[in-house]
Write a protein that binds this DNA or RNA. Structure first.
Lengths: 224, 224, 224, 224
DNA sequence: AATGAATGAGGATTCATTCAT
DNA sequence: AATGAATGAATCCTCATTCAT
């Protein structure tokens, strides 16, 4: 939330408002033409500001990209916060969270994709900040999984919690990146159902544990 | 396979050699500084060529990016072709293929990441060509899965074949994108083993089918 | 009249001023070194502008050439407008107009020559616009000739009006192109007088008509 | 005729042949794309020569332009030499010569126009040589006019010979430059007839002389 | 004699950023 | 606080010319 960038001190109220204008305009332009394909002039114009005014509220073009990425995460998290997850056990809540997560990703697909593609254009420092925010999403799933282990509705081995959380987050990335390829075959609802089913099976499997050798091969073809 | 771009008619032998020099140099630079952060002069110099010579073998900077992406896929596929997959049933082969796939991705992680990040900078036409090559990877897994269904070593519902193939391919993307985050917790081998185990469980599950609605079975969180 | 090119919307006053600076500087450079021999940087510098500033007021180098040609015609026509042509009959006015025309051409000889030589470097569309303005000059003479036919001070066949108008305009082109050759023998005044005399003889010939075979009118096609 | 440029000494026979190939190819390209719009590579290729071979027979691109201009004049003069001019008096011959001249110009219009437009791109030295050849054409007409004065078929004042010769030559230039404007109204034949008629009237006028001072004829038909 | 590969100086154009008003 | 005019470094790409083979 707290941007590490602090341009000239002004009325903080106004700064916030102007930055929002800028980020909103920049986001639309970046989606349409990419970060490198968009000029600061265009951003200023689309923000309803003068070329110079832009730099009163932002220190550089990179800064704008940073703010955009920041905003996307903020938006993403805000929406996730509103996903209702009724039910007492984690096993009851997880499918809801997953569905909510993927629906949010679907709604924000353009900006999500943008974020994944342009993050690299950020200077190292900012990039890490953005990546850390990405981890916050993963942590949400990790937390729920851990709760599920505690309430015994999940049977997952604790050592796999992080990986499962990543696997789940990646589903969002997957839907954003591969919609062009998946859409025809799997509409959003089918995608959600199927993936939820798969994930739930992992989480609730009653068998011998996850990081086991792939045990079901009749004659014994281990993976290693 | 053949690049759609073939600038001036010259000794094809030399063209190939020079292009390889260029692609090799460009790849390294793109990884280090990104596509937009690299100048054509740098590429020329790093290729051991003069500024102008570069353009004897390439029509534009975008063309270089295209060739780089093309080369990455060619390299990727060539390596996949060499993954040994002994065993009679698909169920025996799949773990081998998966391990080989992820190891190759790990070796090529820099350029794989590069490709995912910079594909968007390609002009539409070329972008689609690159994306189609991406689908070829997915198709490899799809084919093996279908064979497994035929030889009854997999129990997957046919309607889920494509999705599972995507899920597998995404594991590669995941490893490339998230290594910075996963590495500490999961070294490559652990990642491979765990993910293989998960995938195999999906493929060989003996239960009623994959596209089940997410089941909140009260008594035990299991969906089966 | 209005240039079809109007790049960024700015203070029109300033645009006009800057463009004039540019056109003035470019004209001098083009005369000295030719269009292709002049660089945009030179033009910018000579205009007292930065390299980039140039492009705030002009869209391309070709655009500059267009503006130069446009300016030349505007200048030419403005000067022609100021040529006093007293006298009641067209026959009285024509020699004055001719003299004024040729004197203007002589004064502007460098830029006139420039225009004739570089017009071809313009893109098709603009070229036609320039050529149409050239025809406007011819039309001035055609109009006067027609008036002379009406007031009976000229005896020219109507079918020859256009040709005679062209013949007159060409005298200007001739003086611009051939001054290096004609100068020694015919100073401007002599050139004007002689050519005027010839032209007037055509216009006032009392004989049988112009598109006849060369007629040796017995009594003598005198001018008076 | 004698090019002042003499590249590496080789079999003179071959040099001539190769140069002709080059000039022929270059002429076509220059007409189509202009001098500056044509590359030496294109010229070489169109000449059926290698890029380097071109420079065995030519010292620079400018040299090619020079050779092209030279060839055009040679061609022009050769064709003029073949214009039949029967008749005993110059007055009989002139219309024939004029017609032949204009017909040749019409046939060669593309290259004539080319020559007028690109001469300026030549370095000073070569330019003057080309211009001097232009004067040779004018001199042909001057010679005939002088003969006409001698044989009393022309009544032109000797001081006007040069100017009349220029006026005639300019008719060719005019037809080349203004065909786009004149064509509709005056087909070639009409143009020739009318202009011949005008010229002949000047040459044969029996009146008081051509370089009459701008008519101070007090009574009226004055040009002033 | 013929070649085409190699070259780098040079050119048009863009754009993030500044700063005087 | 707001602006937009000004800037020049930086970039991609071209092309006349050379030279080893």
């Amino acid at each position: 939330m707290g941007s590490p960038i602090l341009p000239p001190a002004k009325d903080p109220q106004l700064v916030l408002q102007r930055r929002e204008q800028i980020v909103r305009a920049a986001t639309a332009l970046f989606i349409q033409k990419g970060y490198h394909g968009t000029t600061t002039r265009e951003i200023a114009r689309a923000s309803g500001l003068g070329t110079g005014t832009l730099y009163e509220y932002v220190t550089s073009k990179e800064d704008i990209l940073y703010l955009v990425c920041d905003m996307i995460h903020t938006e993403l998290e805000a929406r996730l916060d509103q996903v209702p997850t009724p039910g007492e056990t984690a096993a009851n809540q997880m499918p809801r969270l997953l569905e909510g997560f993927l629906r949010v990703i679907d709604e924000l697909q353009d900006i999500i994709l943008l974020m994944y593609q342009e993050t690299q254009s950020l200077p190292r420092g900012h990039m890490h900040y953005v990546l850390r925010r990405e981890e916050a999403i993963t942590e949400r799933f990790a937390t729920l999984i851990r709760r599920g282990i505690e309430d015994h509705s999940f049977t997952l081995s604790p050592s796999s919690v992080t990986l499962m959380a990543h696997n789940i987050t990646v589903l969002g990335q997957m839907w954003a990146f591969r919609r062009w390829s998946l859409r025809h075959t799997y509409p959003l609802t089918a995608f959600i159902e199927t993936q939820t089913s798969l994930i739930m099976r992992e989480l609730c499997a009653r068998d011998e544990g996850m990081i086991a050798t792939s045990a079901q091969t009749p004659e014994g073809g281990s993976i290693s």
